[in-house]
Design a protein around this nucleic acid. Structure first.
Lengths: 395, 395
DNA sequence: GTAGTCTGTTAAGACTCTTACCGATACGGA
DNA sequence: TCCGTATCGGTAAGAGTCTTAACAGACTAC
């Protein structure tokens, strides 16, 4: 409740902030146009530009000539006023990408790693490398966003536990913060994929959507009212544990199946292992679950029973989600989801229509390359923007 | 994006608004205290009080003496500056309650009705009656909030379809608005119960919670990030359709079971009919599902198998919800939920713990009397407050 | 070459807030 | 009993933000 009272300074901060946001969203702008967009007068817009320029947040990037009068100067956000890095680690590789505050990726790197590596060291090395490639000093780094399988405590921002990566555990957040000296955000990988989908993929401008990740593991990202919902303990979307018909109820959540893999009901139905098995049973030979789906799509109608059965299983999960949160859009992502493409989505959509009285659009992911890394970078850019805007308001 | 620029007038509006909110939240206040709470100086607080008083939004309600200097005047929101009415219709009775903008109910009425009555007329009559009892003219009425079983389109605010009430259909919102000449809000009854629970019940200050309504029908209200989530088509929480193990998958959502009742999987498992049947099978004789639960609780350990089975069934639904949205709190409400009380909640909580890796608190509803009506009144008060605050900002 | 239009600046005024000061009031301790 | 002190409410002067109005300069159009 300790909100500042409405002093005139607050007004200035609000307008500076508004102008900065418009510059971020609508590219280079003249003073006049900035005045129109913010609703402020010409004079105030000029003062505001001077302030932002003196702080190094914006710069002149050219002039717009061709009009009647003198050439107007074009202002844009200075990308170098804040850098962020996104990191994604999957199985045996760790990737990183760097961006300025304006958005576009300016450097990318990828190197091998193993689950036994110390995560702090692995992240440090890859961040250092990508910054070198970008020609940016570590002191200019504002935020690092790291994707992880598993659950992140929304209170502390720390890893609660992580599938596959035994060395990623509680305390990692603080260790990385200490090591890199910048703000650290650890986020669930499926959530990051959903952020990418909303920013540059199939879910642009959708306020209520879910992203159903079907790959080695399965997961769900829930976006409601335009906001990513992490749940009270960060476990929102852990739908591997969803109790569904067609799979035996777990005797206990801590028990493991015969593969030694943690898994609840839906996990046993549409996890990668189950999909491979299903493909095999239908006589489809391919490498891995996603490969099986691709092979089935290529095979045409002979593979229909396999795809139908897979769609039925997925639809049960989707239907449960629809019954609870009623999204406008369901994005199928992950290896298997992406491989299934529009064909599988159509089958799932039809099956869902028979189970629940709502009909969300079901579409394949439109972010085909490194969605998690992409989401991490986007999140980093957003975080560094927020920090800049807060600094505007504070001073 | 057409947001107003940061003019000094906006500042005044913000501060007026802040002061009004503080007066609503913290009861009668002196000018000095108001200045402290808003963070404004004594002078500004005085000017602000004068403005609000001239508009009839606040009034002097006494003086606070006993201190050192002269007695300070106490200001409070004038309840009469805006009235709202909440309406709830269940089966054969329609209820209404009226409130001023400060909150407390000032009049209540209840009259018989039937599903065949014209809803516009039924609502009109009960609203008129409760206003008469309150001594308020219809011209002073700002908002009417009506609870309904069934689905409300979040885009239009209109009824999409309603269980049990065939005459409640699309167009009702506009018809009521025309008839009563004030703002109309139609809201799902379970959502209203959740609003009441958050305001005066067991879910105060909880940001992520769900209310599981177990009664004649079953339903769910989802509150995430402090906001009620209605879903893209208003069908969030229609968990009667949730596919669960232990109940047969629906062949088609439009088919009906042998009772002729629309129902998905979870509905068939824990709907009132199923609970009564289960009780009968365990040799518990009582009138209705809630009665059976009360009888079982009174009977003690001989009835344990019945309660355990019921808890198991409920837990499957709760577990599915937890897997998707991970609430901090699950409130069991509705006839059956309320009857089950802490004993049933404990059993459900234990069963949920075996199904999913999160452990939300499971508690019985703390709003025992007319939760839906209560929620409707609270919603009406909030809406009329919003309207007043908007009017402050506009002028 | 001149008129017209647009950019960016300066000057004066309106509105909001703040600090500083003052008279009036009522309690508490000497 | 009386005076010191804290508090309430109000007035006056000042600082910060915005606005409109007017102006000097640059560039295009005819």
């Amino acid at each position: 409740m300790t909100r500042r009272p409405g002093t005139p300074e607050l007004l200035r901060a609000m307008n500076d902030r508004s102008a900065f946001e418009h510059l971020l969203a609508a590219g280079p702008l003249t003073r006049g146009r900035l005045g129109e967009l913010t609703g402020l007068s010409k004079v105030t817009a000029s003062q505001l530009v001077v302030r932002l320029q003196q702080r190094g947040l914006i710069e002149v990037v050219g002039t717009r000539s061709g009009g009647r009068g003198p050439s107007a100067e074009l202002y844009a956000v200075r990308p170098g006023c804040s850098y962020s890095v996104g990191v994604d680690m999957v199985l045996d590789r760790i990737q990183a990408a760097a961006s300025g505050v304006t958005g576009p990726v300016i450097a990318h790197t990828s190197r091998p790693t193993t689950e036994k590596d110390d995560p702090v060291r692995a992240v440090h090395e890859v961040v250092e490398e990508v910054l070198t490639r970008a020609g940016v000093g570590i002191s200019e780094l504002s935020h690092v966003v790291i994707g992880t399988t598993g659950v992140v405590d929304p209170g502390t921002g720390d890893v609660t536990f992580s599938f596959d990566l035994p060395k990623w555990h509680r305390g990692l957040h603080d260790a990385l913060h200490e090591d890199l000296g910048c703000d650290i955000t650890i986020e669930n990988d499926v959530n990051l994929a959903a952020i990418a989908e909303r920013e540059v993929g199939a879910a642009r401008d959708v306020q209520d959507m879910v992203l159903f990740w079907v790959g080695r593991g399965i997961g769900l990202a829930v976006v409601l009212g335009g906001r990513l919902q992490r749940g009270a303990s960060g476990a929102a979307g852990e739908i591997g544990y969803l109790p569904v018909p067609g799979a035996p109820l777990l005797a206990d959540v801590s028990s493991r199946d015969d593969r030694g893999q943690l898994g609840g009901s839906l996990q046993q139905l549409v996890g990668a292992g189950a999909v491979s098995e299903l493909a095999e049973r239908h006589g489809i030979a391919a490498d891995g679950a996603a490969g099986a789906v691709r092979a089935a799509l290529a095979a045409g109608s002979p593979a229909d029973p396999f795809l139908n059965e897979l769609a039925q299983r997925l639809a049960v999960g989707v239907a449960a989600v629809c019954a609870v949160v009623d999204p406008a859009l369901v994005v199928l992502a992950g290896d298997v989801g992406a491989a299934g493409d529009e064909r599988l989505c159509k089958l799932v959509s039809e099956a869902v229509g028979h189970l629940v009285p709502v009909s969300p659009k079901v579409v394949p992911t439109a972010v085909r390359e490194d969605p998690v890394l992409r989401g991490a970078v986007i999140t980093g850019v957003h975080k560094s923007r927020d920090a800049l805007l807060a600094s505007i308001a504070a001073s």
